[in-house]
Design a binder for these strands. Structure first.
Lengths: 138, 138
DNA sequence: TCTTGAACCTCTAGTCGCTAGAGGATGTAG
DNA sequence: CTACATCCTCTAGCGACTAGAGGTTCAAGA
């Protein structure tokens, strides 16, 4: 079971330069190499890279992921710390959701604007500072 | 009504270097200057910078904001285009919300983990690729 | 065995949207 | 008139990639 970087890329859904970048910043260990210096990976790397991608998609910063990866190597005393990292992140996520939900509602109200009645289009007003209409003529 | 960059910064809640950066990339017009080359702003700039900040907070990219600002200068034929920019953005926002909500649920399940029962902590498993448990011993 | 060509290698530089710091000039209040 | 907060420009840095140049390796087919 030996994968090239291209195969790893496809399996883990992470672009090749990004894999090399992760290796460079120490998020991914240096893999085995062929005589000709080409990288070869195993199943463990596929799992780890999936872990990283998943965490990135969920908004964890690289530094947080590094901490999580470090902690998983000492699992017997890690749960509390993992818990703490996660809880901090949860607050951020909740905050993001709240702001995006407010945005979505605004955008939906905007999009409800009737194309044929340009004079009533609210997009600019809504994006302008609340309460102050920047384009009264619009 | 003449504001220094510091006053503008406070009123629009945008940091001074960011204001200068916006000017540099052409998002904000070059303001009037004193004899000694210090920037002086008026009420219009406060409104425009508020508009920009609001749009940035809501996740609009600088390029999209530039388009919106351009369009507001030709309001009689702009509504459709503004609408289009907004609708595209709305799709992205909805997608983000969906993914973050899924994340929030995962994180909340993780945080519900009992500290005293490390062996049941699910954080690592949830972050690992779904269905594959990276740390079966944990 | 040889050749072809896709995939790999390293390295540097660019992207976006800021942010920080150096080193010096300006403006205003006492 | 002096002190000093605030301003100026300029360069460089950040995170997390992404792109390109220029060259090498590997594996499959003839």
């Amino acid at each position: 079971m030996s994968l090239t970087i291209g195969e790893l890329s496809r399996q883990a859904q992470v672009k090749i330069p990004t894999i090399r970048y992760y290796e460079q910043i120490g998020l991914l260990a240096e893999p085995a190499r062929t005589e000709g210096q080409q990288r070869r990976y195993g199943a463990a790397e596929v799992r780890q890279l999936n872990f990283i991608r998943h965490a990135r998609e969920l908004g964890f910063e690289v530094e947080a992921i590094r901490q999580l990866l470090d902690l998983t190597r000492a699992p017997e005393r890690s749960c509390g710390e993992v818990h703490e990292i996660t809880r901090t992140h949860l607050e951020e996520v909740k905050d993001k959701i709240a702001r995006l939900t407010a945005l979505r509602d605004e955008l939906e109200a905007m999009v409800a604007c009737d194309h044929r009645k340009i004079s009533e289009c609210r997009i600019i007003e809504v994006l302008a500072d609340h309460g102050q209409c920047q384009h009264a003529q619009h």
